[in-house]
Write a protein that binds this DNA or RNA. Sequence first.
DNA 1: CATTGTTCCTGTCGGC
DNA 2: TGCCGACAGGAACAAT
Length: 281
Amino acid sequence: MPELPEVETVVRGLRPKLEGRRLTSVVQRCRALRFPLPRDFANRLTGRRVISIARRAKYILVHLEGEQVLICHLGMSGRMVVEQAGKGPRRPLEKHDHIIFETDRGDEIRFNDARRFGMMDLVAADQISAHKLLKGLGPEPLGNSFNGPYLAAALKGKRTPIKAALLDQKVVAGLGNIYVCEALYHAGCSPRRQAFTVQCGRAEKLARSIRDVLNRAIAAGGSSLRDYVQADGELGYFQHDWAVYGREGEACPGCDCGQTSGIRRLVQSGRSTFYCSARQR
DNA sequence: CATTGTTCCTGTCGGC
DNA sequence: TGCCGACAGGAACAAT
C-alpha cells in the first residue's frame, strides 16, 4: 500500500504529465471514496491549469490556478494509471477507475481504487494548513526538523509500543506498516519497546533508520504490493529490499541468528509486525 | 487527555 | 471446482 516513498514516486511520475497542463476534462464515476467527494467536484476542476504538485505525508497536493488545491490520498489500493497521448488506443476503463482526468496534451490519468480507502477533496489554497486531514500531521521524516532530539521529545511520556507510536501520523507523518517494520529492524529496536524508552542514542539511531529506509525506497521507485502501480505504469523495486516485512519464518538477513529464531510475526493493535527478536531489543 | 478498538471496502488466498 | 472465512491496511471515529 502506498506509504511515503510510493506517494513520492507517484508525485514524481505525475509532475511531467500534469504540471503546467490544463485539465480539459474531469469525470467522476462514483459518489464517494472513503468520504463523499465534494459537491461539483469535477466541474470545479475542469478547465483549471495545474500549477504544481507536492506531497505532504501520504497526501498528494495538486495546486491549481484560482488558488485551489486538490488533496488526494491513495488509501491502500489507490493507483494513478496514466494513459499516454499518442500511444495507440486507450485501454477500456476498469471497474474501479473512479476519477478520470484528461489534460490539454491528451494524456489521461485514471484514479483507480478497488477498496476505496482513498480520498479526495478540493479546497481553497489558504485553507490547506487548517484542513482537517492535514492540520494534525507531525513533521516530514525527510525534512530538516525530524531528527533524534525531535523524536525523543515526541516519544517522551508515550505509553504505547514504539511500533504504534511510529504509525501515529502526529508523531511523524508518512510512515505505514511496512516502513515502520523496516526502520525498527534496521535500528535494532524491538517493536514492543515502550515508546518513552526510546531516547538519546536510541532515538538518534531510529530517526536515522527511518530516513535511510525511506530514502532507499524512494531511490528504488517505491515498493510494489499487489495493487500498487507507479504513476508511469512501471513497478517499484524496493519490495525486494525488505529485510523483515512479509518474511515470517525466513532467516534474518542481518545477523547470524537465522538458525535459531528467524523473522517472527506478531499482531500489534490489529496490524502485523515483522521483526527479528535476536537483533531487535 | 491518552490510548485502544472498530469500521469502512473488496480482492486474494488457503483450507476443505 | 467452488465456497467461505481470514486477511490486508490508513485514518477517522467511538469507546474506554
